[in-house]
Design a protein around this nucleic acid. Structure first.
Length: 351
DNA sequence: TACGCGTGGGT
DNA sequence: TACCCAAGCGT
């Protein structure tokens, strides 16, 4: 076996990155003099928060087509942005995205310092460092889940997350180079995404094989350690899918904060441990479907009972508003609401 | 510090 | 099926 080189070097990683960097729509090629558009870097980083690259690509494409600049996005209607974000999850990101776009548009351009970026809504320590390094060439240290995993293995940090976080940040900072900090940041993340993966890391082809302490100890795949997660409770609820004879659907815009905040959804009950009694949003012949919508959120499992009714044009409405058939797009609903629509659709298509 | 906050893909 | 996980942020 080769001797361990105890010191990891950014240069070895950058050399690997120059050959193996993933080609992504928001990226400049490695080592290129041209810096990527801060708007595209910011948009991609917000979309990528807790979200996979494959999931983001289509959304990034649609957003940049519809709103090519931050000024365009700042001028958008709230409902249009929420509809375009539907399905991507963590909808507070979309609300903050729009707030941030409007602040930046008012300022004229994106701030080019860590502190300036950090002051914007939806931009935290990770995203601020990523934009500063990638879009503005500043030597800031980027620490996301990939970097945490790579650092935990490189230095064989056995303390579980999140307690280990400060030590991992120190390790990451010590490796950040003065030159090409943006490429370095993306290189560590690419390494974590393609080689230093959570399971079955490909240590044999890793540019940091030699200095990696966990690889040396044979525990790379066991790091980083994590505290056990809490169990998810089950919650129950009812949703009401009403459709008028002219094809319009009865929907409501959910409150701006909280779960699915600001998104379109079917009126319904609260979601609780016992199935709550609920008042339909309009009088009518409401029928229970024999199916059940199952959906798992970050912190609970949900089982929804969809109820359906055909409504007449003069039906008085207690909650929500009608969306004309021509304006309705299931893709504009958050996934759990789209699932309910998919289950109820046959009822309305039967004559 | 811990929790609330989505979704789809991999194993 | 039931986990686990993915370029975190706000409170």
């Amino acid at each position: 076996m080769r001797d361990r080189d105890p010191v990891a070097k950014s240069a070895d990683l950058l050399e690997w990155y120059d050959r193996h960097a993933r080609v992504l729509p928001w990226r400049a090629p490695p080592g290129s003099d041209a810096r990527p558009d801060p708007y595209r870097v910011w948009l991609s980083e917000v979309m990528l928060q807790q979200t996979t690259v494959p999931a983001v690509k289509a959304y990034f494409h649609r957003f940049t087509l519809q709103w090519p600049t931050v000024q365009d996005l700042a001028a958008a209607e709230d409902a249009d942005v929420m509809a375009a974000w539907a399905g991507l999850g963590y909808y507070a990101r979309a609300r903050n995205l729009l707030k941030c776009a409007r602040e930046v548009a008012a300022m004229g351009q994106f701030p080019d310092t860590l502190e300036g970026l950090l002051a914007l809504p939806g931009i935290g320590p990770y995203t601020a460092a990523a934009i500063a390094a990638i879009a503005f060439g500043r030597p800031e240290t980027v620490v996301d889940g990939n970097v945490e995993r790579v650092m935990a293995r490189l230095h064989a940090v056995e303390e579980p997350l999140p307690a280990a976080k400060p030590a991992l940040v120190r390790h990451a900072r010590a490796l950040t180079p003065a030159t090409r900090p943006g490429d370095h940041a993306q290189a560590v993340m690419d390494l974590g995404a393609t080689i230093c993966t959570p399971r079955n890391p490909a240590c044999g082809i890793c540019p940091w094989w030699s200095p990696c302490a966990a690889r040396d100890l044979g525990i790379a795949a066991d790091l980083p350690r994590k505290l056990p997660k809490k169990e998810k409770p089950v919650r129950l609820g009812i949703v009401y899918l009403g459709r008028r004879s002219d094809g319009a659907w009865l929907l409501e815009t959910r409150p701006a904060s909280g779960l699915l905040g600001g998104m379109l959804g079917w009126p319904g009950s609260d979601w609780a441990e016992a199935e709550p009694l609920a008042m339909p949003p309009a009088p009518g012949d409401w029928q229970t479907l024999n199916g059940e919508v199952r959906h798992t959120f970050t912190h609970f499992h949900l089982r929804l009972r969809p109820m359906v009714a055909r409504l007449t044009p003069d039906t008085p409405i207690r909650r929500g508003h009608f969306v004309a058939a021509a304006d309705f797009r299931a893709a504009h609903l958050p996934t759990v609401m789209r699932k309910a629509w998919t289950m109820a659709r046959p009822f309305f298509e039967d004559a």
